[in-house]
Computed example of a mutant assay.
Amino acid sequence: MTTPGSPPLQTTTTTRSPLILRVAQGMAMGSADVVPGVSGGTVALILGIYTTLVGAIESVASTAGSLVRGDRVSAARHWRAVPWGFVLPLGTGMLVALAIGSVVLPPLLEGYPVQTSAAFFGMIVASLAVPWRKVAPRGVREYAVLVGLTLVAFVIMGLPETTVSGEVSLLRIGASMAVAICAMILPGVSGAFLLVALGVYEPVLEAVSSLDLPVLVTAVAGAALGLGLFSKVLGHLLDHHLSITMAGLTGLMIGALRVLWPWGGLEGRLDAPPAAGEAVVALVVAVIGFVLIRTLVVVGERTSPADPD
Rank of each mutant, 00 (worst) to 15 (best):
M1W: 03
T2D: 07
T11K: 08
R16L: 08
I20S: 14
Q25V: 08
M29W: 07
G30F: 06
G30P: 01
D33H: 11
G37L: 07
G40I: 11
L47S: 09
I57F: 02
D71V: 03
R72K: 10
F86E: 02
L88A: 15
L90S: 02
V96M: 08
I100M: 11
V104D: 04
L105V: 10
L105I: 09
L109P: 00
Y112R: 11
V114T: 13
A119C: 06
A129W: 15
P131A: 15
K134C: 15
R138M: 01
R138G: 02
R141I: 03
V145T: 11
L149E: 03
A153K: 03
T163S: 15
S165N: 14
L170Q: 13
R172M: 13
C182G: 13
P187C: 14
S190K: 02
A192W: 12
L195D: 10
V196I: 11
V196Y: 13
L198H: 10
L198V: 11
L205P: 01
E206V: 06
E206G: 04
L211W: 13
D212Q: 13
P214I: 14
L216A: 07
T218W: 11
A224L: 14
G226N: 01
L234T: 05
D239L: 00
G251L: 02
G251H: 04
L252Q: 05
G255W: 03
L257A: 08
L257G: 02
W261M: 01
R269F: 14
A272H: 10
P273H: 09
A275Y: 12
A275T: 13
A279I: 01
A279L: 06
V281A: 10
V284F: 11
V287E: 00
V291G: 02
T295I: 06
L296Q: 07
